[in-house]
Design a protein around this nucleic acid. Structure first.
Length: 435
RNA sequence: GGAGGGAUGACAGAGCGGCCGAAUGUACCGGUCUUGAAAACCGGCGUGGGCUUGCCCACCGUGGGUUCAAAUCCCACUCCCUCCGCCA
């Protein structure tokens, strides 16, 4: 949620910033007008309320002095005022809730660093990385044996069974088996071990209340992208960002405790409602995938470094796995609702010949903290909203795809990078099992 | 799923219709004293919102209701604790 005080103070700055994301200035004007009206009504109802309270005090005083006639007169006056007050506060609440609704739908202000642009085609590629790049090796060319799609590799080796997944839960729910399943586990354990030095490991619930979903900005705007369990008012989490952002909801943290860094390995559920039929083969786009998330609550001054640390760690995993990837600076039009500045990581998957998004590292300024009401006490004793940053490190389904394609050998087996060996209890080689 | 008990400020814990935003203790911050610390003493100490910056309003788990007036009475819900049942 953006700051209403800032909206009053400098509406033109907000219009310009939101305009970059395609929000018309009319929408902002409507909110400003509602705010003015809301405060006018608030003053009126509070004035009436104060009067009722004052009269009630005098009723009490009169009755103590056994002046029952005066007491009844005052009570009668107050009764009338009470009706007015009720009406006034109902009107205030009506305008107030309309104002809140609009405010909740308004996206965050893009940071000045964010490049202009309308959609993903305008994202700016910052750099690429590949094995040997630092020693001057050219961008890799991939051999024919690497140019096989992961769904074919998965079928041939018996490690990915999309048909069974579909049988159990419908299409786009993958089922990994054998070494394929172990690979997901290995990746998650490897990453968690990498982050254990600075991030507290959390295993949150995989479902969240509506309030919890509100805090990150996923609701009310993106309800159609989420799985809902209506009878229990629960939602399947689309990312661990949701529970982690709400972990300290409604709390005031000590400045000395910041940054609070958290990591979590959870399943992520996405309906992908608008994506029917588009890039949906194999693991390109799935309804459920596992992900290790990095997250931090921090002060505004710590935010840049907190975001940089997450990006560094996400890249570190990609480099340790020897995967080719690129770094994108998301343009204003492609920014997530809550984000002020986002860097995406895309891994190159040679078998499908595509860049696949595997991480999104975002700084939310105080947008989420305002919704979740997470503050910190500064050294001078005042309170301020924390900043939140998060990023995946990483989303494993697409990493799984890029790994088996990149490391497919001429004989059809997959020889995974040595860093995973400890998690495989030996040579991380995936071979077809004779059936 | 059934029965009972509870939810008040950072914590403990009073209040159970009328200057109660809330006693008291602890913690915390400032001061006096002290070579320094401790102790003692004095003072301060919740969060948001509105506007004429001094005042007003809201908040005692959440949402409704009763009343001139609700932390206090009534109803519903949520969470926690104890016991029983069921159970990975």
């Amino acid at each position: 949620m953006i700051d209403l005080a800032q909206l009053r103070r400098e509406p033109d700055v907000l219009k310009a910033a939101l305009g970059r994301r395609g929000i018309s200035s009319r929408e902002v004007d409507e909110i400003v007008a509602l705010d003015v009206e809301h405060r006018r009504l608030l003053q009126e109802s509070e004035r009436l309320r104060a009067e009722v309270k004052e009269l009630s005090r005098r009723v009490g005083a009169a009755r103590r002095e056994k002046d029952l006639v005066t007491a009844e007169e005052l009570a009668s006056t107050s009764r009338g005022l009470g009706d007015d007050e009720r009406q006034a506060s109902e009107a205030t609440e009506l305008v107030g809730s309309r104002l809140r609704d609009l405010l909740l739908l308004l996206p965050n202000l893009p940071d000045p660093r964010v490049p202009d642009g309308a959609d993903e085609n305008d994202n700016v590629e910052v750099r690429r990385w590949w094995v040997g790049m630092d020693e001057g090796a050219p961008f890799p060319t991939f051999a024919d044996h690497q140019r096989v799609a992961h769904w074919d590799i998965g079928r041939d080796l018996g490690i990915l069974d999309m048909e069974s997944g579909a049988k159990l839960a419908g299409s786009m729910f993958p089922l990994y088996r054998g070494a394929g399943s172990r690979l997901i586990r290995a990746l998650a354990f490897f990453a968690l071990d990498q982050h254990a030095d600075a991030y507290e490991e959390i295993r949150p619930p995989s479902v969240a209340l509506t309030d919890t979903m509100m805090s990150t900005g996923h609701l009310p705007k993106s309800a159609d992208d989420m799985y809902a369990i209506e009878r229990d008012d629960l939602w399947l989490i689309p990312t661990a960002e949701v529970p982690l952002t709400s972990l300290h909801r409604g709390e005031i943290l000590n400045e000395s405790a910041l940054p609070v860094r958290l990591t979590a390995f959870t399943p992520c559920f996405r309906r992908e409602a608008g994506a029917a039929g588009k890039d949906t083969r194999g693991l390109l786009r799935v309804h459920e995938f596992d992900k290790v998330e990095l997250f931090a609550y921090c002060t505004p001054a710590q935010a840049d470094e907190a975001q940089a640390d997450i990006l560094r760690r996400a890249e570190g995993i990609l480099q340790a796995l020897g995967l080719t990837y690129r770094v994108l600076d998301l343009c204003a039009g492609d920014l997530g609702t809550a984000s002020a500045y986002t860097i995406d990581l895309e891994v190159f998957s040679p078998g499908v010949d595509r860049w696949l998004e595997v991480s999104s590292v975002s700084w939310f300024r105080d947008f989420q903290a305002r919704r979740a009401n997470v503050r910190y006490r500064t050294s001078d004793g005042s309170t301020a909203f924390v900043h939140t940053v998060n990023g995946s490190a990483l989303a494993w389904a697409r990493i799984w795809a890029a790994l088996v394609e990149t490391y497919r050998q001429e004989d059809g087996s997959v020889r995974l990078p040595a860093v995973l060996a400890p998690y495989f209890g030996g040579d991380p080689v995936l071979r077809a099992t004779p059936s």
